[in-house]
Design a protein around this nucleic acid. Sequence first.
DNA 1: TACTTGGCTTCCGTTCAATGGAAGGACGAT
DNA 2: ATCGTCCTTCCATTGAACGGAAGCCAAGTA
Lengths: 250, 250
Amino acid sequence: MSASVTSRALDLLGAFDPEHRTLTLSALARRSGMPLATAHRLVGELHRWGALARLESGEYVIGRRLWDLGLLAPVQAGLRQAASPFLHDLYGATLATVHLAVRDGTEVLYIDRLAGHVSVPVVSKIGSRLPMHATGVGKVLLAYAPEAVRAEVLGRLNRVTAYTITQPARLLEQLRRVRAEGFATTGEEMSLGACSVAVPVRGAVGEVVAALGLVVPDLRRERARLVSALQVSAQGISRVLADPSSAQWK
Amino acid sequence: MSASVTSRALDLLGAFDPEHRTLTLSALARRSGMPLATAHRLVGELHRWGALARLESGEYVIGRRLWDLGLLAPVQAGLRQAASPFLHDLYGATLATVHLAVRDGTEVLYIDRLAGHVSVPVVSKIGSRLPMHATGVGKVLLAYAPEAVRAEVLGRLNRVTAYTITQPARLLEQLRRVRAEGFATTGEEMSLGACSVAVPVRGAVGEVVAALGLVVPDLRRERARLVSALQVSAQGISRVLADPSSAQWK
DNA sequence: TACTTGGCTTCCGTTCAATGGAAGGACGAT
DNA sequence: ATCGTCCTTCCATTGAACGGAAGCCAAGTA
């Protein structure tokens, strides 16, 4: 068997991931399972085009041209743009790490993030995917997800920390409360020392399109204030989503 | 002549640009100059891999997988990360649109941007390139650019608005002042109704690695305050760049 | 100095996958 | 009913991708 030329080139690109942002030619060949000579030629083409760049060390990295292209992807472009000012407001009001996330299959995809100087240990990065059952935004998205998705997630509740919820019944109960109260919380379920609150963001017809969350070291004191700040922002975003022109006059 | 398969696939991707974020199959074929049948097959592969996505309308757009990849590009990743909190601070302190930009050849490349609710007409977007002589960040970067770059830019001072500086001598004089005073300003030179201030961001050994700028409707009143806010932030970023560990304890 | 190891680059004859013209289908407008 | 536009599939031809082999360079080792 021998895949098509194009898919081979793409496989080379696919060899890059957050843990491998720089790769040598031989590593690329190895990771994508093709002879060195072949990889050499393909990488050469990718490099010439600007999809890959080469460091002084000789290692390859994703090039600026792919960065440009990536920015054109409609990964909730409208949502990100509408939400951007509200994220800043939230940060200003809380000085906590702010997250905007959507559901991607059975995981949470972080599409924007805003962290301050003093940040809690947070795993998320823009573009990263985390499990739904261990994050605040994840619980919100799960609470409003189609039944099939919920079933699948409940089937595999992997333990992340000692506090991660791994019993389907307990999670279901929490999801019910999320729908009733309009917000979700976590307490060190994803990483120790980090708690979170999150609320749903609704689209033009009331459907949940995203989740907005805050990560703080401790939740006990300020929960009410944080939830209310979140809800104000989420409503603001919804309003802009429903009527983009209203974004101008605040 | 007939280019290599890989480069054809890349040409298809290259058909997307900020003005053409969605394209039909035939448009793709047309824009990249290849027979429809060929485009069809290649697009199919790109789509299967996730480089392209298809809207309900049948049009193609850059896919989420390329978005992921693009985020891995080391486009000043360190710089963006170091600067992020300071950009938020600046926004909080000024409520103006905040820009972080680097020089890309003879143009300004905006690598981060932060806009508020009430925004001035601003052309920039993350990933967009603008002329150096008509923007605040551009003037700063130009003032500290190698002589060869400056010469080339001065050779082509295209008019953008009625206020754009098109006389080399006047621009040179301004650049001298930028170096002397440590900041640059513009007044409706890129778009009417928008003025800007910008300062250099220095790296570990004092070299200028980026520019930090603000866009506001009017400069007269607040210039001093804005410049000082910018300089504080720029120094903060420099400190983090020189010693990344210091980012933690503010 | 000689030898080894690991990565990078170039060459080139074979072969197999990419090519693209043609034909057909779906949709909408006139 | 006819045209225009776009999408999809087919398949015989052919020229471009393939990858083994050989050579290069630099760093480490004896």
